[in-house]
């Protein structure tokens, strides 16, 4: 924990809003390209509240996986948000409703800023400030993306299929910079690579969770903590 209290300035908010705006557009264009109706695409991206889960779902369906395999893969990658909520909620002011409202909005950028606040009174305020910037980009993004989905044409020609994996890499960069995080990430990637040709679609993503074993072993051997 640092003593300085990182604040989310106007420029940061604008960059974050632009980021979520572009992610929202990308996801909707992809959904429309896969045959979703306007209302289906809008409803999905409004209520699910996890682009990662939607992209994972689509990736498994694209690979020929069934609905449930894709749903489970989408649910497994959403563990990230559950873990983010574990570090956020204990820092929030008491009150089940306020805590629940914040926890269902836990994303990487807002939790990262909120938990860095040394002053407990600032945690909740900074969390919602960053959340507002994200939502301010996301909702216009999914509306624009849904309605331009039909005119964009070939998403491959625009390189839009490379947007989300690049975005995900940027999101987990902080974790990959730690040695145990890198070990876990590398193991997860290798498990997935090895299983794609032999396992049913969806299974490689679901089983990649065992990549944490490599990270845990590394942490135990080199840092002295771990199970």
């Amino acid at each position: 924990m640092t003593d300085d209290q990182p604040r989310h300035g106007r420029a940061d908010s604008a960059a974050l809003a632009l980021t979520f705006f572009s992610l929202g557009i990308t996801l909707q264009v992809l959904l429309i390209d896969r045959g979703a109706s306007l209302w289906n695409a809008l409803a999905a991206s409004t209520v699910i509240w996890s682009a990662t889960s939607q992209f994972s779902y689509l990736a498994v369906r694209d690979a020929g996986g069934g609905d449930w395999a894709a749903i489970i893969a989408g649910a497994v990658v959403a563990t990230r948000f559950g873990i983010l909520a574990t570090s956020l909620v204990p820092r929030l002011p008491a009150g089940a409703f306020r805590r629940a409202l914040a926890s269902v909005n836990a994303f990487d950028p807002n939790v990262a800023i909120a938990v860095q606040q040394a002053d407990e009174r600032c945690v909740e305020r900074e969390f919602w400030r960053v959340t507002a910037a994200m939502m301010g980009g996301w909702f216009p993004g999914i509306v624009v993306g849904t309605f331009i989905g039909n005119v964009v044409g070939d998403i491959g020609r625009l390189g839009l299929d490379a947007v989300f994996p690049a975005a995900l890499l940027s999101i987990i960069a902080g974790l990959l910079r730690t040695r145990e995080g890198f070990a876990a990430g590398l193991a997860g990637a290798c498990i997935c690579l090895a299983l794609i040709p032999i396992a049913p679609p969806g299974v490689p993503i679901i089983l990649s969770v065992f990549g944490v074993g490599a990270g845990a072993v590394y942490a135990k051997r080199h840092i002295g903590v771990g199970p």
Binding site: A59, R80, G185, G188, A189, C192, I205, S208, V212
Partner: peptide, 11 residues
């Protein structure tokens, strides 16, 4: 560490 493993698999 779970997000590192799972998100890398999605990537």
């Amino acid at each position: 560490l779970v997000p590192a493993a799972v998100v890398m698999a999605v990537i």
